[in-house]
Design a binder for these strands. Structure first.
Lengths: 185, 185
DNA sequence: TGTACATCAGTGAACGCGCGTTCACTGATGTAC
DNA sequence: TGTACATCAGTGAACGCGCGTTCACTGATGTAC
């Protein structure tokens, strides 16, 4: 039956939030519309009053996730972010973590539309990180921002794949030390 | 109909090679037994005379791919490997490239059996890279090997997701410069 | 070496299942009077 | 403010499709004599 505009808007947000979590956990292909709708407390049919297709939802999830990530660059210090990024909690909690790590592998196989949204978001993120490097070191350094980002993403990815806490923690702290130690990388 | 033992063995190798390529391109879930069998010149039914299940095949693909990677550490210099790893060709050619980059994202969602094979392979690879660092710098340094690996993997992953040649090449050369420049990282 | 036959790799139809998407229907919402 | 009714968010059955896996069957292989 029909629901009020406020409730309907809340349902849309719930679908996005569920998709955001489940897609990070299981990938674009590993999650179904029914799964997402169920987590949002709806049936699969209702999905299509809010989104045109699964692909459109995925694009919106990626867009929002990267925008949130850029937002955190504005509001949190680099040191704090690196510590959180390479924490055991982040490695264990794939549902709420970094979309780059969770979705880069998927995105190259996803539809061109979703890929384009991701690529544009990545470009903006690098822009923002390069500005931050400028504040830290005195001169703008896009390359240094890129290398630090790649190291973070790679370390989180490998830590998650490590399975044993020993190797996982070793990877996380090696990367943390390297990224926090010197201004050079 | 029955075929000779030699032909049958060739078919098994062809299935493994096809799976190795297609799984890197499309992920474990994105490729079907029928796709793999067709690329090997067989029908899907024949698959099950060579492998118990799709999961068993995936485990074998991961095992072999990481073993090959470790083999290349033995036979190729670090400098040469970094240059090849961060080349445009490697970024564009996902079907034959590094299994860590192609499959890390998938592996955390795959079956525990496949995950365990991957994690064990990763551990062995880090062992081998740590030995190499020892030759390069005079003292064994597992942490330095881990950080360099994470940087490579992260850079290739992001370069592949970048979509525009400009950002892709920027990521590749930033990481290449950082990894080849100094013995410190 | 030649023959008879058991073996078994490969084929393709069939299975149950879950997927993304559609659609006729329901009934609360919210608007026009 | 109350009433009548058009709107439209949500439901759940249904669609065509592709998946992993099974299995009766085929016919070349390779072994026993």
């Amino acid at each position: 039956m029909k629901v009020s505009k406020e409730v309907s808007e809340r349902h849309r947000e719930a679908l996005l939030a569920a998709a955001s979590r489940l897609v990070r956990l299981h990938g674009f292909e590993g999650v179904s519309i029914a799964d997402i709708a169920a987590e949002a407390g709806l049936t699969h049919g209702a999905f299509y009053t809010h989104f045109d297709s699964k692909e459109a939802l995925c694009a919106e999830v990626v867009e929002q996730a990267i925008a949130d990530m850029i937002g955190r660059v504005e509001s949190t210090s680099r040191r704090k972010r690196v510590e959180q990024y390479l924490s055991v909690a982040h490695a264990r909690n794939r549902g709420v973590g970094c979309p780059l790590t969770a979705l880069s592998g998927d995105v190259v196989r996803a539809s061109p539309a979703v890929g384009a949204v991701f690529a544009r978001g990545l470009d903006h993120l690098v822009d923002r990180l390069a500005v931050e490097e400028e504040y830290e070191s005195g001169s703008p350094d896009r390359d240094r921002a890129i290398v630090a980002l790649a190291t973070r993403v790679g370390a989180l990815l490998l830590a998650r794949a490590a399975q044993t806490p020993k190797l996982r923690d070793e990877i996380l702290s090696a990367a943390k030390t390297a990224l926090l130690a010197s201004p050079r990388q």
